[in-house]
Write a protein that binds this DNA or RNA. Structure first.
Lengths: 341, 341
DNA sequence: GGTTAGCACTCTTTCTGTTAGAGTGCTAAC
DNA sequence: GTTAGCACTCTAACAGAAAGAGTGCTAACC
């Protein structure tokens, strides 16, 4: 059967009424909120058709209609457009993000808080992955007589710190040596090529100086591991508790899934910028959810993702507008930061 | 009425059976799990007395007994002792905390994960507050042509970083000047005395160099604010969802409370090392909860708190043993770190 | 052929009444 | 002081009845 203009109109109205009410939408209320001059019986026939096409579901015989996963999909793909963020909200967002514009990790933290605050859903953000980044420098800062902080900096502007302890007294001279050795060897090297094996050969090449540097090397290894990976930050899981659409059990499953950052990261990576509805993700825990994902870029190259997770019933026009603006802002700030180098 | 030894025994057994079962305890099951050779009728009389004394509650006439808040209090104060942590668990804890022993913030993160993992409740930790600390140094690290990271270090071993941006090109020489000026003025100064007003006079004293340093000063101010405060980290709120004792409403209230870190911090500070049961905290949101708090020290001086929050029904002997060991470990590690200076 | 009014039908929700079971409190005997 | 026995009370679970909502179908209409 074909999706006539009137069917589209009715489907869109059903979805939108369902978004605001959360209740199955009946033919009568739909009629009242629709600017078509037809009776509820006609609407009823159309809704029955839409049900037959798999776009609307009926919880039970005497209930109204609810969009099915395919119904949501059609709505997302062809019946709505993202709602631009108002000027006032843009100002608010900018003022919140600007102070941490020069620190990617803190910036993504800010985005996370922003998204949870403005959507009352769960926000997921990933920091730029060092996969395509190189070391832009290594710094050492003495923090006490025998401890120092190693700071690994990447071309993406991320910084990864580790405090390490030596069993001899440190001095500016010693740290200068550390600095020279580490920067000579590492600056410009792709982060993904700082492997344990590489560090071992690096250490071996140092001769007996290696003994002095072993704890610094360990710190470097950990910092490099952190830089390679991507911090997955999940914020505002609490908000999902208050979504009536989740059962105790589905919530539990969902929370357990969100506790496995690698899997969440992999999903965001392979999904790209789009909305994953329920089973589309292939993840059982996400069966009843909607997951809106936007990727941000650095110099036009994909660098990470920000996302909002909630029940399938969400205000996507608004959500996608917000997500899009946030991703653009992050892309702009991080690209500027990279261009500073 | 007096709390005879037999009454104590019965109260303790009631509490302990309730801890494991979560169900009201009847006279019959209690009798079976008690090594007293008396009949259920006798136990019934005693339980009735304990009810009259306000130590046991009865959800309804035909239900067993449940410890009241006062009952829990008596149990905690005089009927139980914390359970020492097993050697195996001690090893596990140590191995988890040791790698971050030289970074207080990461250490407390580790404790937080530890407590949620081992108790399946919510953990609350506070990082050492800079209230009694002084600046042990300020460092600058260039991170790109026009950005640098300021690192504020305190005598407690905490580190606070801020990346700032200048509208002129930085150089090692410029940063050396920054380093000298900031360290001359700040090293040894109590963190709490780095006020906005002080920074203003500091800036004024610099003459026109002030223009060059304004963004560094702003970064310092933010870092100092962070150092003064205490990061309150709440972890594993999710776990509370699966405690049947909480209603939707009480959970909501609880979550909202946990979203206000200053209040949580103030409560932990004034409570000291002990268990707060329900209304004892004076916080309505905590009415149905138990909150076990332990303070850790640096050189014998109170520095912060770690705590576990859950329903009133918790396995306190185990919990208190764990909390005590964790607090001792943190105290030891942080004191060692401070002694390094 | 598309549209509409009317109505029977179905299913959920809510309320009420009933029953089985659990645990108590009381009494009288030990 | 302790115990056995028993009546009492309250909950949880189930079943049936009534109310309400929304549909699907049919027959008439434009």
């Amino acid at each position: 059967m074909e999706l006539t203009p009137r069917k589209k109109k009715i489907l869109a109205a059903t979805v939108e009424l369902y978004i605001v009410s959360g209740e199955p939408v009946g033919s009568k209320v739909l009629c009242e909120n629709l600017d078509i001059r037809v009776s509820s019986a006609t609407v009823r026939n159309e809704m029955s058709d839409l049900g037959g096409m798999g776009l609307l579901n009926q919880p039970h015989t005497s209930a109204g209609r609810v969009p099915s996963e395919r119904g949501w999909r059609v709505y997302l793909d062809s019946l709505m457009t993202p709602e631009p963020v108002s000027a006032q909200e843009r100002r608010f967002i900018d003022s919140l993000l600007l102070p941490s514009a020069y620190d990617p990790q803190k910036l993504l933290d800010g985005v996370s808080r922003l998204l949870t605050g403005m959507t009352h859903m769960t926000a997921i953000t990933t920091t730029p992955s060092g996969n395509n980044a190189a070391v832009s420098g290594v710094q050492f800062v003495q923090t006490s007589r025998r401890t120092a902080m190693l700071i690994l900096m990447t071309t993406l502007g991320t910084m990864h710190t580790r405090v390490f302890h030596c069993d001899f007294d440190l001095s500016p001279d010693v740290l200068r040596v550390f600095f020279r050795v580490f920067n000579d060897q590492l600056t410009g090297r792709p982060v993904r090529r700082i492997t344990p094996a590489y560090l071992q050969t690096l250490g071996a090449g140092m001769g007996e100086a290696m003994l002095l540097m072993s704890s610094a090397l360990r710190a470097l290894q950990e910092a490099a591991r952190e830089a390679m990976g991507s911090d997955v930050r999940v914020d505002g899981q609490m908000n999902l508790l208050f979504c009536s659409e989740f059962t105790q059990q589905s919530l539990r499953r969902l929370m357990r899934y969100l506790d496995r950052p690698q899997e969440v990261y992999a999903l965001l990576q392979r999904a790209g910028t789009r909305v994953l509805l329920g089973s589309e993700s292939g993840v059982p825990a996400l069966r009843d959810t909607g997951l809106a994902i936007a990727h941000y870029t650095v110099r036009g190259r994909d660098a990470g993702a920000i996302a909002v997770l909630g029940p399938m019933r969400m205000n996507y026009p608004r959500l996608l507008g917000l997500l899009d603006y946030a991703a653009r802002s992050v892309s702009r700030m991080l690209t500027e930061l990279m261009d500073l180098q």
